[in-house]
């Protein structure tokens, strides 16, 4: 290290440059992320007159109400069920799609083409994507008709649409791409020579996947998991539409609260959910070093 006697103001200038670099992000994040969160946080401590009027102050009444409600636990269990099921299926599908694209498609142009194909569902809106399931899963839908025609069933399956199954199907349909992209990314960085070296050592295809590919895609899996978990836990729309109102999630419950002007309890639920999500993300980051993925 060379002691720089040239100027004492050099570090402060470097500081200024640093601040300038982050300023665009700060300008976006503060009004659109930090401020709303603070508003929600403040509202969760306010009292309400029950008709939408808020009384500034500090009371834990909303939190006590939320935490004491037996419904809260039920909602969290329902949400976690959806989250875990969606996570498992998106992970399995996402992993194998990425694996296929990276290791089995020799032609790079073809791989990019297939990769873009995965994004096709995103060319249309979420609502249309969900509605599209109705002709397939509905009572008169293709699947029921096919099963009836084959004689496998004698009356239409009701469980296909407007059920928990339909919710999970819609989530998996929407979110698998969020698994594919980061896993594809980390797999694409695996040097093909490592695979060859493993083959040279006598590793089977399964050994290679288990001992080389999975451990080296860990950061991609973790990133995808964060995307999927936070989207599912923060969603109410898919649950509402695909369950036909039969199921609820944490967010759909406080959406109802907002509908009946119970802002402080809605805010308290939101803060609680945020904390739970932060804890889950922190847990994921503790298990997998994602920095490695970002800095590499």
């Amino acid at each position: 290290m060379q002691p720089s006697s040239s100027s004492a103001q050099a570090p402060s200038r470097a500081n200024l440059a640093g601040w300038l670099y982050v300023s665009p992000l700060v300008l976006v994040l503060v009004p659109f992320f930090v401020a709303p969160i603070l508003v929600v946080l403040a509202a969760s401590f306010f009292a309400t007159d029950g008709f939408g009027g808020l009384t500034p102050g500090f009371t834990l009444a909303s939190y006590i109400e939320v935490l004491h409600s037996a419904l809260t636990l039920k909602l969290y269990l329902a949400t976690i069920k959806f989250t875990v099921l969606t996570w498992v299926f998106t992970l399995i599908i996402g992993f194998f799609v990425a694996y296929f694209l990276v290791f089995h498609v020799r032609n790079q142009l073809l791989a990019i083409g297939l990769f873009l194909l995965c994004t096709v569902p995103f060319w249309t809106s979420n609502i249309i994507r969900m509605i599209s399931w109705i002709p397939l899963l509905g009572k008169e839908g293709l699947i029921n008709q096919a099963l009836l025609a084959m004689g496998v069933i004698h009356q239409p399956l009701e469980v296909l649409l407007f059920s928990d199954l339909a919710v999970v199907i819609a989530y998996v349909h929407q979110l698998t791409i969020f698994m594919i992209v980061p896993i594809f990314n980390s797999m694409a960085r695996i040097d093909k020579k490592l695979i060859e070296a493993a083959i040279d050592a006598g590793a089977s295809r399964f050994d290679i996947m288990r001992l080389i590919v999975v451990p080296m895609s860990k950061s991609g899996i973790a990133l995808g998991t964060i995307f999927v978990v936070s989207i599912v836990m923060g969603d109410f729309f898919v649950v509402k539409v695909m369950s036909g109102g039969g199921s609820a999630s944490v967010v759909s419950a406080f959406y109802e609260d907002v509908g009946v002007l119970q802002y402080p309890t809605a805010a308290a639920s939101a803060v609680l959910l945020t904390l739970v999500l932060v804890a889950i993300v922190a847990l994921i980051l503790r298990t997998v070093d994602i920095r490695q993925e970002i800095t590499r």
Partner: peptide, 10 residues
Amino acid sequence: AMMFQSYALF
């Protein structure tokens, strides 16, 4: 057994 160029260590 092969020793790869740039080693290909895991």
